[in-house]
Design a protein around this nucleic acid. Structure first.
Length: 744
RNA sequence: GCCGCUGUAGCUCAGUGGUAGAGCGCACCCUUGGUAAGGGUGAGGUCGUGGGUUCAAAUCCCACUAGCGGCUCCA
C-alpha cells in the first residue's frame, strides 16, 4: 500500500504498486501528458533518483514529476538530462543506420554516451574501412528527426547478469562488455588500462541484473545496454542534432583504444534548439580571437611561431594600463619590484626541480655550440647526449638530498662533472630567479615577509593541439610575485593576495568566476613538507577563500606537490574554463635553494614561499577580458578613448584644436578628418568600439563646444563645453569606471 | 601528440577539372555634409607549402604546415 509524498508535502495513498506515470495521472491529466520522468526517493538511503516514468513504485516514496517544458520555458536540468540521455540513443541508432556495415559486415560499436552540460556525446568505435565525417551530418540529422517522429517508446527490460553477460560477449562489443562488468562490480575482462574511471553507464555496482533499453520493441528495434532513465518515447525528445566530431580515448587512457566522440545536443522544442544555435553564433562574435583580429589588439604570426603573441600597439595599451594598475596596488601592499632575464642555467632548474622532471612541457635546453660540436665529433648518440644534459652533479645532488632529508635525486641521474653538458633554459617559471634574489642577501625575521614582484615572461612547451588564441600560449607574462615569509605569516599573506584578486575583479566588473582550493590527496605521499605544515597551510587557504564571500570548492588531490593552492577559474564565451589567478603555498623552494632567515632565536629558519599571480598571465587575462567586454572596454582601458569627427573639412581646423586639447590632457584621442560624411565616420568609430565620439561642426566651433556621442547610445547626447568634457572624461579615466558616464 | 574540419586579395567569404571573383578596407577623383556606410575610378592574388594524377588542377590524390572544435596534458 504505497504512500506517495508529493513535492508540496501532500500524501497520496494507493492500494497497489503504481507507476510514476499513474501517480502523475492521479494528480492531473495535463501533468501526466507533460511528464517525461520522475525523481523518486524510495527511502532506501540513496536519496532522490531520476527514473523512468514507467518505474513501478511498490513502497512508500517521495516523488517529483519531471515535465518537458513548453516552448518558452527554460528546461530544468533533470528534464534536459532525460531528453539528452535519450537523444544519445537516437543519435547512435541514426549513425549506425547511416553508416551501415563494412565489407566484413562489421558495424559501428558503441562505447559510452552520457549527457553533458550543453548536450551529449556518444563514444564509438568506427571499424576499418568505414568513415564518419561531417558530410554525414545531414543524413544523420534527417534520420534522427525520423526516429523522433516515429515516437517509438523507450522500453526497459532487465536480464540476469548470467544471461546478459554471455549475450553481450557474443555480440562482440568489448566496450559494452566492459561497461557491464563495471556495473556489476566485476573486474574488467577486456580493459587493461592503468587508469580506471568507470563510466557508470548501466546500473549501481553490484547489481545482479543488467538493464537494456530498446527504442521500440525489444528484439525488434534498436537497443542498448543502459542504466537509464529515459523519456517515455522518442517524440518527447523534441529536437536533437549532431554537432561535431572529436577523438577520445577509451576510459580517457591514451594507451587504450582511440574512439570517435560524436557530440550532439537536444532540446524539448525545435525553437529552443534553434535559439541555442543562434546563441552559439553570438558567442563566436565575442570570441577574443575574432575581436582581437578585428580591433587589431594582438597578432599571431605563423612565421614567428605557434602560441606566441605579438602585442600590437592597441593591445599593448590595454596590457600596459592593467600592469600600471596592478603595480600601484602592489606598492600599497608593500611589494618590491625586480627584473630578471628570460633564461637561466640548466643547473638552476635542476636545483628548483623544473628540469628535467617537467621537461616535456619546457622548450629544449640551449646548449653551447662548441659543446655540441665536440659531442657530435666524438660520436655521442642522442640518447647519451640527453642523459648528459639531464644529469646532476654530485655536489648539487648531495646538497639537495641532504636538505630534503631523502633521496630526491635518483642515483642514476648523478654524473661526474666532466660528463655533464652545461646549458641554459628558457625560463618556465620565475621563482628560481626570485629565490636567488632572496638568497643573495641575509634576512632577519624583522624584514619578513619579502615580497618580490615581476611581470616575468615564461615559456612552456604546450602541445600544439592545446594552443588557443591568447588563452593557451607558449610564451606568456605572469604578473608574478613570490612572498618569502615565516610560517606564521602565511594566513595574512594569503589574505593579502586574495584581496588583490578581489580588487582586480571588482574594478573590471568580473563576477562570473569560481574559486578552487586545491588540497592534498590524503592517500598520496608525493608531497613535500610536514603534515602539520600542510594542515595549517590548507586551513589558511580555506579560511582565506571563505572570507572572499564567493562560493568555492575544495578539491583534494589538486594541490601542487609543494603546497596547497587557490585558483580562480573563469569561463570563455564557449563555456571552456580557464585558470586565471593563482595563489600557491610552497614548502619546497626554501630547502631546494637553501634559503633562510634569522629568527628571534638567532638561528636560521626556512622561509615558506607563496607564489601568486592575480591575473595569471597577461595574455590569458587579456583574452578573457576581451570576451568579458566584447571588445567594448571601459574608457580607462580603451586603446582609443575618444575620437573627434568634424562634420566636413570646413571644421577640420577646429577638430584639430579639440584633439590638441584632449591630447594635452592625456586622453588617448584621434581625429577622423577623412573626406566622408559624419554618418560614415560614426559607423567606422562604432565598429571600433570607441567610448566617446565628439562631433564638431561650425555650431560647436562658435561656442567652443563638442557634440558628444557615447558608445552604446543610439543617439547624440547634445553639446557641452570642450573644457567640461575634458575634465569629465579625465575623471572617468582616473576612477577606472566601467560605465561610460560623461554626459552633457 | 591524437580524431574531425578548414586554409583563395589586408579582412569576411564565393568559386566541383578549361582565361581567378564579390563585399568591406586601401589609393585617387567628385561630393562639403549635423549623428550607424554619398558616388565614381583604380591598385591589390605563385589559390598555405611540396609532390603526384591529367592535354589541363584553386578544384582530384599523398605528405607537410598552420588555424578551428574536441581528447589527452597542464609546475
Amino acid at each position: 500500500m504505497p504512500q506517495i509524498t508529493l513535492p508540496d508535502g501532500s500524501v497520496k495513498s494507493f492500494d497497489a504498486p503504481v507507476t510514476a506515470h499513474a501517480v502523475a495521472a492521479s494528480i492531473g491529466t495535463g501533468l501526466a501528458k507533460a511528464a517525461i520522468g520522475a525523481k523518486i526517493d524510495l527511502n532506501d538511503g540513496q536519496g532522490p533518483q531520476l527514473r523512468d516514468l514507467s518505474t513501478l513504485i511498490d513502497r512508500d516514496a517521495s516523488i517529483a514529476i519531471i515535465t518537458a517544458p513548453r516552448a518558452n520555458q527554460a528546461a530544468t536540468p533533470d528534464a534536459l538530462f532525460l531528453i539528452r540521455h535519450s537523444a544519445a540513443h537516437v543519435m547512435a541508432e541514426a549513425i549506425q543506420d547511416v553508416l551501415g556495415a563494412n565489407e566484413k559486415g562489421e558495424r559501428v560499436l558503441l562505447a559510452y554516451g552520457p549527457p553533458t552540460e550543453t548536450g551529449f556525446f556518444y563514444d564509438m568505435y568506427i571499424p576499418e574501412g568505414m568513415k564518419l565525417s561531417s558530410d554525414h551530418f545531414d543524413a544523420i540529422n534527417a534520420r534522427i528527426a525520423e526516429i523522433i517522429k516515429e515516437d517509438r517508446p523507450f522500453t526497459r527490460y532487465e536480464q540476469p547478469a548470467s544471461d546478459a553477460l554471455p549475450r553481450l560477449k557474443s555480440e562482440g562489443n568489448k566496450y559494452k562488455v566492459d561497461n557491464a562488468e563495471r556495473a556489476l562490480g566485476l573486474p574488467s575482462s577486456v580493459y587493461k588500462g592503468a587508469k580506471a574511471a568507470p563510466p557508470d553507464a548501466t546500473r549501481a555496482p553490484g547489481s545482479p541484473v543488467l538493464s537494456f533499453y530498446a527504442t521500440g520493441q525489444p528484439g525488434k528495434n534498436w537497443e542498448d545496454l543502459c542504466r537509464g532513465p529515459h523519456v517515455p518515447s522518442t517524440s518527447r525528445i523534441g529536437a536533437a542534432r549532431v554537432m561535431s566530431l572529436a577523438s577520445a580515448y577509451w576510459h580517457g587512457d591514451e594507451n587504450s583504444d582511440r574512439l570517435i566522440r560524436v557530440y550532439g545536443t537536444a532540446f524539448p522544442t525545435q525553437e529552443q534548439l534553434d535559439a541555442y544555435l543562434v546563441q552559439l553564433e553570438e558567442a563566436k562574435k565575442r570570441d577574443h580571437r575574432t575581436i582581437g583580429k578585428a580591433l587589431r589588439l594582438f597578432h599571431i604570426d605563423e612565421d614567428v611561431g605557434q602560441g606566441l603573441i605579438l602585442w600590437t600597439p592597441k593591445g599593448s595599451i590595454i596590457r600596459k594600463e592593467l600592469q600600471t594598475f596592478i603595480a600601484a596596488e602592489l606598492k600599497k601592499q608593500g611589494y618590491t619590484e625586480v627584473f630578471t632575464p628570460h633564461i637561466g642555467s640548466l643547473e638552476l632548474y635542476k636545483t628548483s626541480g623544473h628540469f628535467p622532471y617537467y621537461k616535456d612541457s619546457q622548450f629544449a635546453p640551449i646548449v653551447e655550440r662548441n659543446a655540441l660540436d665536440e659531442l657530435c665529433a666524438s660520436g655521442c648518440s642522442c640518447a647519451e647526449m640527453l642523459n648528459r644534459v639531464e644529469g646532476v652533479s654530485e655536489r648539487l645532488a648531495r646538497g639537495l638530498n641532504e636538505r630534503a632529508r631523502k633521496q630526491i635525486i635518483a642515483k642514476d641521474r648523478i654524473l661526474p662533472d666532466d660528463q655533464l653538458i652545461e646549458g641554459f633554459m628558457l625560463k618556465p617559471m620565475n621563482c628560481p630567479h626570485h629565490a636567488k634574489i632572496f638568497g643573495s642577501a641575509p634576512h632577519s625575521y624583522r624584514d619578513m615577509p619579502v615580497r618580490l614582484a615581476e611581470f616575468g615572461t615564461v615559456y612552456r612547451w604546450e602541445q600544439s593541439g592545446e594552443l588557443n588564441g591568447m588563452t593557451r600560449v607558449r610564451g606568456f607574462t605572469q604578473d608574478d610575485a613570490h612572498l618569502f615569509c615565516t610560517e606564521d605569516q602565511i594566513p595574512a599573506e594569503i589574505q593579502g593576495c586574495l584581496s588583490l584578486v578581489k580588487t582586480i575583479f571588482n574594478v573590471l566588473g568580473m563576477k562570473d568566476y569560481r574559486v578552487r582550493v586545491g588540497l592534498r590527496d590524503p592517500d598520496s605521499n608525493k608531497y613535500t613538507g610536514s603534515a602539520e605544515s600542510w594542515d595549517k597551510a590548507e586551513k589558511s587557504c580555506i579560511d582565506a577563500a571563505a572570507s572572499l564571500g564567493v562560493s568555492f570548492s575544495k578539491e583534494p588531490g589538486e594541490a601542487a606537490f609543494y603546497g596547497p593552492k587557490i585558483d580562480f577559474v573563469v569561463k570563455d564565451v564557449i563555456g571552456r574554463e580557464w585558470q586565471l589567478g593563482t595563489v600557491q603555498v610552497d614548502y619546497q623552494m626554501g630547502f631546494r635553494f637553501d634559503l633562510s632567515y634569522i629568527g628571534p632565536d638567532n638561528r636560521p629558519h626556512r622561509p615558506v614561499v607563496i607564489h601568486r599571480a592575480p591575473f595569471g598571465s597577461m595574455e590569458r587575462f587579456c583574452g578573457v577580458l576581451i570576451e568579458h567586454f566584447a571588445g567594448a572596454f571601459p574608457t580607462w582601458l580603451s586603446p582609443e578613448q575618444c575620437r573627434v569627427l568634424p562634420i566636413s573639412d570646413k571644421s577640420n581646423d577646429y577638430g584639430h584644436k579639440v584633439l590638441a586639447a584632449l591630447t594635452a590632457a592625456g586622453v588617448r584621442a584621434s581625429i577622423d578628418d577623412a573626406n566622408e560624411r559624419v554618418q560614415a565616420k560614426i559607423k567606422v568609430a562604432a565598429d571600433e568600439k570607441i567610448p566617446y565620439l565628439l562631433i564638431v561642426g561650425p555650431r560647436d566651433a562658435e561656442n567652443n563646444a563638442v557634440s558628444v556621442r557615447a558608445r552604446g547610445v543610439e543617439k547624440d547626447l547634445g553639446a557641452m563645453p570642450l573644457d567640461t568634457f575634458v575634465s569629465r572624461i579625465k575623471a572617468e579615466i582616473e576612477s577606472k569606471g566601467i560605465e561610460l558616464g560623461v554626459r552633457p
